[in-house]
Deep mutational scan, measured.
Amino acid sequence: MQIFVKTLTGKTITLEVEPSDTIENVKAKIQDKEGIPPDQQRSIFAGKQLEDGRTLSDYNIQKESTLHLVLR
């Protein structure tokens, strides 16, 4: 499925993911596309910070959902 990741600069990245993917996985995909190390990424969805060990389905993130990426 496709999800979108919006950065603070307003750029939107499209990722191909599975509901079973962990947040860690997703951060690795963002690193592949953007070169941002996962330890600098904070992902926010529906106002909640997403934890690395959880999966997209844990957070009820579905296709075409938009995550927000904040850098630390």
Rank of each mutant, 00 (worst) to 15 (best):
I13W: 07
S57P: 02
T12D: 02
S65H: 08
L67D: 00
L8N: 13
E24K: 11
D58I: 01
G10D: 04
A28H: 12
Q62V: 12
T55P: 10
K48A: 11
P38N: 09
I13T: 02
K33T: 10
A28V: 10
S43Q: 13
I30C: 02
I3R: 01
N60P: 02
L67Y: 00
Q31F: 15
Y59V: 01
S57T: 06
L8Y: 12
Y59D: 00
E64D: 14
Q49E: 15
I3S: 00
Q62K: 11
S57G: 09
P19R: 06
Q2H: 12
G35A: 05
L69M: 12
I44P: 02
R72S: 12
T12K: 06
A46G: 10
L69Y: 02
L50G: 01
E16H: 10
K33P: 07
D58L: 00
I23R: 01
D21T: 09
D39Q: 11
A46Q: 14
E34Q: 07
D52G: 06
V26I: 12
T9M: 11
T7W: 12
N25R: 14
L50H: 02
A28Y: 11
T55M: 09
R54H: 11
Q31P: 04
I61V: 08
T14M: 12
K29S: 03
R42C: 15
I36E: 06
I13K: 00
T9H: 12
K63D: 13
L67Q: 00
K6N: 05
R42N: 13
P37N: 08
E18R: 14
P38K: 14
L56I: 09
V70P: 02
A28W: 11
I61L: 03
S65A: 11
I23D: 00
K27V: 08
N60I: 03
D39P: 08
T55I: 05
E18L: 14
S65W: 04
F4Q: 04
L71N: 09
E16T: 12
Q62N: 08
Y59I: 03
K11G: 06
I30Q: 01
E64C: 10
S65R: 02
Q40W: 11
K48G: 08
I30L: 07
P37H: 11
Q40Y: 10
L56A: 02
L67K: 00
G35H: 07
G47S: 05
G35K: 06
G10F: 03
V17H: 00
T66R: 04
P37K: 09
T9W: 14
K27N: 06
L50R: 00
N25Y: 11
Y59A: 03
A46N: 15
V26S: 00
R42Y: 15
L67S: 01
I36N: 05
Q31V: 07
L15S: 01
V70C: 07
G47A: 04
V26R: 02
Y59H: 03
Q49L: 15
T14H: 05
I36K: 06
K63W: 07
N60L: 05
V26C: 02
D32A: 13
T66I: 13
S65C: 03
L56N: 01
L8K: 07
E34C: 15
T12F: 09
L50Q: 01
I44H: 06
E18Q: 12
L71W: 09
T55W: 03
V26N: 00
G53D: 12
F45W: 13
L15N: 00
L50P: 01
L67H: 02
I61S: 02
R72L: 14
G47M: 04
S20D: 11
R54M: 12
E51H: 07
S43L: 15
G47K: 04
F4V: 05
Y59E: 02
I44E: 08
L67A: 00
V26M: 06
I13N: 00
L15R: 00
E64I: 01
Q31I: 09
S57V: 06
T55S: 09
G35T: 03
Q41W: 15
Y59P: 03
D39T: 10
T12P: 03
K48Y: 10
R54S: 06
K48V: 14
D52C: 06
K6Q: 09
Q41R: 06
Y59W: 03
V17S: 00
D21F: 07
P37T: 08
V5L: 05
M1L: 06
D52Y: 04
T7I: 14
T14P: 06
S57W: 07
G10R: 03
T9I: 07
E51P: 02
E16Y: 13
T55C: 01
S57L: 13
